[in-house]
């Protein structure tokens, strides 16, 4: 006898609670924010204003400079991660995944440690270390005879952004390292044996065998870095405050969003303009993700191994 099943209530019971919270506090606010960007405040009312907010943020002579500056800085921030963080992560992963190396577990545990700490904490730690008041960095540079290079890097308009980006690199290098390390471990041993028998040196094996095989992971790491960077806020806020000084030289989209939404100093915040900035960030991230999925990931073939 097959029991006649009624409406499958159990499916609803399983799925509804999570779906409800996710929809209410993540999906809906996001959609609402997108919609809000087409409105403006008029007294107590919100009225539809079409693309006026976008015109304001993107082209207004007074307002748009901040956005473009933040976008440019964010681009630099991202570029530093791609060019410094991911290659270091790759190098560390390549070394860790070498066979018969002792102490791998200890190395990877310790190198990953900074990634776990709050960005706020990391920001303060480096602020102290780089502070000319304390002089730790100068002393350390002195050991290798480079104390003349030392400067108040975080305080200077020309170097503050780069310094912050490098601090972020220092903190997060563990993530690309781990992801790449895992994909290197997934390469079958016999394949590396075959390369060894074919006479390939470790360096050649790395460039011609390992690297092409982990290319999809490198793509993934890049897009994850992109999402993380264009959504970053904490580090700049902790070290430089909402004003992202000196003179907005470290302002990125996250801090710009925060200021537009909550206001700063004399200027008042605006929900609708904040929503507009958030929507623009959403579009940028979406563009990046789309480019990755349709442009990059397709070409980076994943090979069955």
């Amino acid at each position: 006898m097959i029991k006649q099943r009624g409406f499958p209530f159990h499916i609803l019971v399983f799925i509804l609670p999570g779906l409800l919270i996710y929809t209410l506090f993540s999906a809906w606010p996001l959609l609402d924010t997108l919609l809000l960007s087409f409105f403006e405040e008029s007294g107590d009312q919100r009225v539809y204003s079409g693309l006026a907010n976008y015109r304001l943020v993107l082209t207004d002579p007074d307002l748009s400079a901040g956005f473009w500056n933040a976008l440019g800085n964010n681009g630099v921030f991202f570029l530093v991660h791609v060019l410094v963080q991911n290659p270091i992560g790759l190098l560390l992963a390549a070394l860790l995944s070498l066979r018969n190396l002792r102490g791998v577990r200890t190395y990877r545990t310790l190198i990953f440690m900074p990634t776990l700490l709050s960005v706020v904490i990391i920001g303060f730690i480096w602020q102290l270390i780089l502070s000319p008041l304390w002089g730790v960095s100068e002393t350390l540079l002195g050991y290798v005879g480079l104390e003349s290079l030392f400067d108040a890097w975080l305080g200077k308009e020309s170097s503050a952004l780069l310094t912050l980006a490098l601090i972020s690199v220092w903190q997060f290098v563990g993530i690309p390292m781990m992801l790449i390390y895992a994909s290197l471990l997934a390469i079958p041993d016999e394949l590396l044996d075959a390369a060894h028998v074919d006479g390939a040196s470790p360096l050649r094996t790395f460039w011609q065998i390992k690297l092409p095989l982990i290319a999809p992971t490198l793509g993934l790491v890049t897009i994850l870095t992109f999402i993380g960077n264009f959504n970053a806020f904490d580090l700049i806020y902790a070290v430089k405050g909402a004003l992202a000084g000196p003179n907005f030289s470290t302002d990125i989209l996250g801090t710009y969003f925060y200021r537009t939404f909550f206001g700063f100093q004399s200027s008042l915040g605006s929900s609708t303009l904040g929503a507009t900035v958030a929507t623009l960030m959403f579009l940028i991230i979406l563009a990046g993700v789309a480019l990755y999925f349709y442009g990059v990931q397709r070409r980076l073939q994943r090979y069955p191994m």
């Binding site: 996710y22 209410l24 506090f25 993540s26 999906a27 809906w28 606010p29 996001l30 609402d32 924010t33 809000l36 999402i227 959504n231 806020f233 996250g254 969003f257 939404f261 929900s271 904040g274 929503a275 958030a278 929507t279 960030m281 959403f282 991230i285 979406l286 993700v289």
Partner: peptide, 18 residues
């Protein structure tokens, strides 16, 4: 799955109002 790619922070304005 969309929630993995799209940071929840971008909805902050509406979350606060909610």
């Amino acid at each position: 799955a969309m929630g993995i790619m799209v940071p929840i922070r971008l909805g902050t304005v509406s979350i606060l109002e909610l």
